[in-house]
């Protein structure tokens, strides 16, 4: 299957799914003549139209990443998701230092340099947000 076909299937599924889900938007009483379904249906019509268009006129295939690049991508996504989950447990500075070190490695630094830079950047961010702006970032179990 070509790229465009794959996109067409994905967009078609998204559009159809959204359109069907919008069927379930039932109003208790009529407040406006158009109702809550019209715009979701417009969105799903656009997606379905795009799917048909792509299926009929497929363009060039994209160059999808090679296996090693794919591993790097997966690692970045995992690191970012992991940060989201350990943030309340480890606290902002520790979690972010680890994230920056992990990402830094993927972009060609060593662990030591990565941890050092990570600490510097996360410390600056923490001071900026928590002290400077009074926004709350989790301090973690050591706070």
């Amino acid at each position: 299957m070509s790229d465009a076909r794959r996109w067409a299937v994905a967009l078609g599924a998204l559009g159809a799914g959204a359109g069907l889900a919008a069927l379930g938007f039932r109003v208790a009483f009529v407040t406006d003549p158009l109702g809550p379904r019209a715009f979701p249906w417009l969105a799903s019509a656009l997606l379905l139209g795009a799917a048909v268009g792509l299926a009929r006129h497929p363009g060039d295939d994209a160059v999808w990443p090679a296996p090693d690049a794919r591993r790097r991508l997966a690692a970045v996504v995992v690191a970012l998701l992991a940060w989201s989950f350990v943030l309340p447990l480890l606290g902002f500075v520790a979690a972010t230092t680890l994230l920056l070190a992990a990402l830094g490695r993927l972009f060609g630094s060593g662990w030591v340099r990565g941890l050092g830079a990570g600490l510097a950047v996360s410390g600056v961010l923490y001071l900026l947000f928590a002290w400077g702006l009074g926004l709350s970032l989790p301090a973690g179990p050591w706070g």
Partner: peptide, 27 residues
Amino acid sequence: GRPVALLAIAAALALPGCAPETSRGWE
């Protein structure tokens, strides 16, 4: 070994503890 890395970890754990208003008190 690797004192930099350890220092980094230790400081990372300690830094939030220094923040006065974000670590205790009412919220």
